[in-house]
Structures are given as C-alpha cells and as structure tokens.
Design a protein around this nucleic acid. Structure first.
Lengths: 118, 118
DNA sequence: CAGATAGGCAACCATAGGGTTGCATTTGAG
DNA sequence: CTCAAATGCAACCCTATGGTTGCCTATCTG
C-alpha cells in the first residue's frame, strides 16, 4: 500500500487542493475571505482597519491568498483593491465533496444497511 | 470596517473551520485522508508503507488530523488503527458552501443581470 | 521464553510562517 | 507644488512545523 488513492480522487487533481486549504487554514485569512466575499472589493487599508495586526501583515496574508488563487488584486489609482476569486473556493468545496462521496461509496453501504434504508 | 463578517457567516462558527483547513493544507495529510476515506481503517505501519517519510512523521500527521477532528484512532491489539471522521469534512464543506452562497448573494445579482438571466 | 513486529517518547534540526519596524515610493487632493 | 494617504520593500524576530534519529515499551508468534 503506497497511499495510493483511488482513481476518482486522483483524477480530481486532489493534490492541487492542498495549497488552497493551507491558505484557508489561518483564521485571519479566513476572515479576510469571509469579509471579501460579503462586501466585494476592498483596499488594503480598509481590510487592515479594525484588525489588531499591521497593514504589512494583511498584505502578506493577501499575498498568500493570491498565490493560492483565492483572491485577485485590481489597481485603482493609488490603492489596490482585492476581491474574491470564487472558482477556487468552488474547487476546494468539490474536493471535500469527492472525499465524502468516496467515503460513502466505501463505507456508506454498511451505514445504510444499519439504518435500514434500502 | 473591522473585518466584521456578515451574520450568516458568523453564525456558522466560521472561525472553527480554520484548524480543519490547516490540517487539510498539507499534501501528505491530504493523501492520508484520501487514502483513509477510500480504504477504511488502517494501521500506522500500513499508512507509512509506500511513503518516503518516516513512521514517526506519519504519526505526527495523524496527530494533527486527530486534533482537527478529522480522524480517530482505535486500538486493536498491538496496532493502532486510524479511520476517517467524515463529520468534520462535512462541516468544512458546508463552510465553503456558505462562502459561495454569500458571494452569490452579494454579487450574484450583478452576474445574473450581465448574463441576461431574469 | 525469544525474537520480531507495531508503536511511543524525546531530543534535535532546518525552514517556513505570522508579525513587526523602518524607510522609500506612488499618487490624489488642495 | 506640497502634503498626506496608500502601498511597496526589506530586514529582522520568534515560534510552529515537517522530518529525522535513537532508544524504550508492548505484544503477537513460534
């Protein structure tokens, strides 16, 4: 056994999902994402305001999110607006969905049998 | 603006999702999860075999996954079997779903208008 | 019992990651 | 033109993290 993953998971380009999850695996970044997704494009200063961390820290976080393809920047005059890139979120969600499906396929039958569902 | 997230996202206990994403944000751990989800419970030795890393490294990864609630261990004689805990996967998936919904709510109208959908 | 198999514990190492401070640069507003 | 706002760049700090090696413990199996 070589941690060989079953075909459906492999074909899904599962390994590519790790950087996205890693980017989402920080509370500050998760807040940034949540904020951006509900409020549209914001500048760095706007995103920093109300936080207890520095503007540079926020910039770094945005950079991480950008490298993961979760966010995109748009220059607007002297400010730089950041907005969400929902495709990657969707990709990540689908990856989790695939895992769940695989799980159901491998063990769900037993579960269904126990629960008495035909 | 204080990175104040909108009510639906807050009520979802969004911050709790960060550790789960962080745990999934490593390729090795992602493989472990994928493998466990498709093959059921495995011992540490089984999970290590076929990997280029050490058994102790695998143990550490499993510990991280366990701390995030993604996996659970069951003692069986002299070996320790690890199995997936799909609830957290489901939680994480729902978090992403929420973000997407929020995004659609905030900007989807514009999108739909552009695409000519009534 | 003896040996091999499965795992636990702990120290140690190197690098990445989250944050900060300090200063330079671009650009909108008077 | 001048100044303040919005960023960019870079060095630096500390801790977390992925990984290793070495050794000890538990437990099947013959």
């Amino acid at each position: 056994m070589s941690l060989r993953v079953s075909p459906p998971l492999r074909s899904a380009g599962f390994r590519n999902a790790a950087p996205v999850f890693a980017a989402l695996g920080d509370e500050t970044r998760l807040r940034l994402v949540a904020f951006l997704c509900s409020s549209g494009a914001k500048s760095i200063a706007q995103l920093t305001s109300g936080t207890d961390i520095t503007r540079q820290a926020v910039t770094k976080h945005l950079q991480v999110l950008a490298n993961a393809g979760l966010v995109r920047d748009v220059r607007a005059g002297r400010e730089r607006l950041w907005e969400l890139e929902p495709e990657r979120i969707e990709e990540a969600r689908r990856s989790l969905e695939l895992i769940e499906q695989q799980w159901d396929h491998a063990l769900g039958k037993l579960k269904r049998a126990v629960e008495g569902t035909p």
